[in-house]
Design a protein around this nucleic acid. Sequence first.
RNA 1: GCAGGGAUGGUCGAGCGGUCAAAGGCGCUAGGUUGAGGGCCUAGUGGGGUAGUCCCUUCGCGGGUUCGAAUCCCGUUCCCUGCACCA
Length: 954
Amino acid sequence: MINLTNHSIEEKWQKKWAESQLFESNPDKREKIFLTVAYPYPSGAMHIGHGRTYTVPDVYARFKRMQGYNVLFPMGWHVTGAPVIGIAKRIARKDQWTLDIYKNVHKVREEELSKFTDPEYIVKYFSSEYHEVMQHLGYSIDWRREFRTTDLHYQKFIEWQFRQLKSKGFVGKGEHPVKYCPGCENPVGDHDLLDGEGVGINELTLVKFEINSDYFVAATFRPETLFGATNLWINPEEEYIKVHINNENWIISKKAYNNIVHQKKDIKVIDEVNALEMIGKYVKNPVTGEEHIILPASFVDPEYASGVVYSVPAHAPADYIALNDLKKDEKLLEKHDLKEKVLEIQPINVVTLKGFGKFPAEEIIEKFGVKNQKDDKLKDATNELYKLEHAKGIMSEHIKDYKDLSVQKARDEIIADLLESGKGDLMHDFTERPVICRCGTKAVVKILEDQWFLKYSNEQWKELAMDCLGQENIVPPEVRANFEYYIDWLDDWACSRRIGLGTKLPWDKQWLIEPLSDSTIYMAYYAIAKYMKDIDPADLNDSFFDDVYLDEGKYSGGIGGELFDSIKNEFNYWYPLNWRLSAKDLVGNHLSFHIFHHSAIFPQKKWPKGIVVFGMGLLEGNKMSSSKGNVILLEDAIKTHGADVVRLFLMASAEPWQDFDWRENEVKGIKRRLEWFSEFAGRIEEIKDSSLSLKSFKLGKIKKPVNKWLLSQVNMRIKDATEALEGFQTRKALQEALFLFKKDIDHYFYRIEHENEAREEISNTLIYVLSNWTRLMAPFTPHTCEEMWSKIDGEGFVSSAPWPEYDPDLIDEKVQKAEEIVQGLASDINEIKKIIDTQPEKIHIYIAPDWKWDVFKIAKEIGRPDIGQIMGISIKQNLHDDKKEIAEFAKKIAREVTKTKYVGKIDEYSIIKDSLDFISHEVRAEVIVYEEPTYDPQNKSRNAMPYKPAIYIE
RNA sequence: GCAGGGAUGGUCGAGCGGUCAAAGGCGCUAGGUUGAGGGCCUAGUGGGGUAGUCCCUUCGCGGGUUCGAAUCCCGUUCCCUGCACCA
């Protein structure tokens, strides 16, 4: 047995692999496979969740290598991006929470932690840690190609990539809303927030209601309801102001100005407005031309949007109830002298909604039991109605320009119309509040101007991307629909950033290239990365990349011709990429970008060939999360369980695209299974009574059914495991190659326990099994398998041994069925024994006569439980004299036959005869099998059926 | 709301027209092995019945197609994931 937590064995093989340069892949005559997995963003320690991500490609790479392919599996470090900047700042600020996480979860030593005020240091620290852990796990990575995305060479590559995209017209300039902290004067990401994580940004429509050549500007999510407006709402307890913008004066709340000022150019405050005085005045509806009164409402949030709302009591529960509240509020009405004007306001229907009357707002308020405008249930009622009308609403008959349109469609058209006619505008606000920066300042939505975009909205580009996707293999196939959806849906993507590490936009150096955009075609960089250490970045001009990657133009620069040629050859050998592996949640951006960028830059023959998508990791049923401390570090897991156990568990507990759950208990189970496997050779030696060697081993002729059975099983497992691995189904492959296989072998050992003859045939069978099994397991547990392989004199490394190929001639359904018959017979006898509750001395077994086999075959060919037809054909063929018996039998098997797998006639007599020792032992009695029922006092033999011999116990 | 995926026995999870009372793991029960324990091996793990290989109920819920459905179709309820500037 191999001690799995004896790390010297792991180290020994890792060292030998490195010394023999086994995984350093160079172009040669063989067929190649190039696979990459998303390079990590090393802002923390590597935990078991990451472990699965990187073990899958390693297993596949090892598998393909054994199949004879030239496999390239490289690794790099994605250190561009903003998060580490925030982390470094927080460490510098001695933020306790951050310090705790890094000390206790990421297990960074005190003296190292003090250097973490430098973001570059953080990524360097963790990328070397990742590197080490990956080596400890025995990954078959070609480390000569390792790089960081801040390397000067890489930056040259990215600059080229972006100039390419720009020259093709796929990069454009525009504006874009972001979360922004006025205090820090910087855009903020989720990790920079104290509160408001995951909050989105909504677009609202601004509608201009004229009053004395100025405009009250109301914000709405539902501009299609403008036709049902009855009045305007403002909050009389808040301050309102007049601002000047685009030669217009807008009236909005003072607090709203603090947001809008970040979104509109050339906007300035020109006057204060007395809100109370405005109450009772009239504004003009820009689409209907009607006059609406301005009324007071406490529900109007002065901080949200513009602080002005127009009222649609027919469809907005808040408006409806605020109007009712006001109608009842004698004091307030009196105060503003509004009584008559308010009482005459009636809701106006705009949207027709099946199942509702003219005023759905009224109905939904009753349904939810909302009491007044301060009731919490108001929000639920509003959401409910909003959803219903959005999904199923139709514009009513009397809305002349938009009638019969769906609400969704009408809304889009109205927004476009308002913008075009200058009667409306757009603004943004958060979906939820509050959103607070870690510095304590309230964040706002800011429109960044001069922002650069990747124009994923470009139709030609989308088409290219679709074409590229169309020729790729997607694993699992269900996510293809996802890709199609996202490629269609993706809009322009802001690809420039103000803060973070990364490459500067080559033509506009104030911007950094955003990290999801500088990691889309870097697989092409791996192909050339191993040459970079001897190359001056200055020699990597655009002509270099044009020539190497696109075979366009001619390189002019300092790199020598011979060297240049091998770089170019190397790329053309490895590209296109065969497999790209990444996480499920990146389908909508990173992986789609990968497709977009390849299709834009590379000719079709260099387009990627396949994508594999990963699920998430759970820890004892809970989501793994470094920030919550709910992780196990890989390094720790390796120390306690051993590298192979960790690998095995990660591969066996779920398919790559499913979520896996790290349960300590099950990990221990896996460990025992692997120990069992590593003991296997020892058990064979015990049986053989001498040491094993694969040198000069030959299987020889196998005669015994049980040995044939095992050979059949082995070959079936090889076949199934290989097919599973071809499709990245590591779990299924291991079910076959380890768990079910182990059951076969348990069964086999149990079966031959009382076998004293044919020891040589048995040990030969077992050595055959061992040789195949060790190779079958090698991609999963390479250290254990190398150790076993060397102990049995396998040739070279098992890592480069030929992958076992199944022998179709050895997979024999009849042999498998025969074993089933023996098993079934023993358990049937035991069942009957239990029922009659005696300890018999003799058991007689009768097999089905030939005519029953014939009838059975006929029944099988008919395929349906049609007794008449079975009998008809059987009688016509004159299979048996006694028609009554045929009838009886036909009736019995009619239904049975649809449930039984028919593999042809089996010589049951010799099968059972060969297994008499085993059956006798199982049933603890003497067993006699008859070819003909020469002794059958109770006429039990008539019960015999194909695959089900009859039994008589006495 | 939009898109995608899912609901299987105590639990995790295969199966995706007949070989399905439904693989395998874990858990539980019994037996064997062991100095005890662990481990390992064997058997059982929805209910009932019988000299037998059978019957009944079950794969979210309700219908349907079929000689036959966990598997196909329709409806319905519930759950998970993503929806962007975050790697």
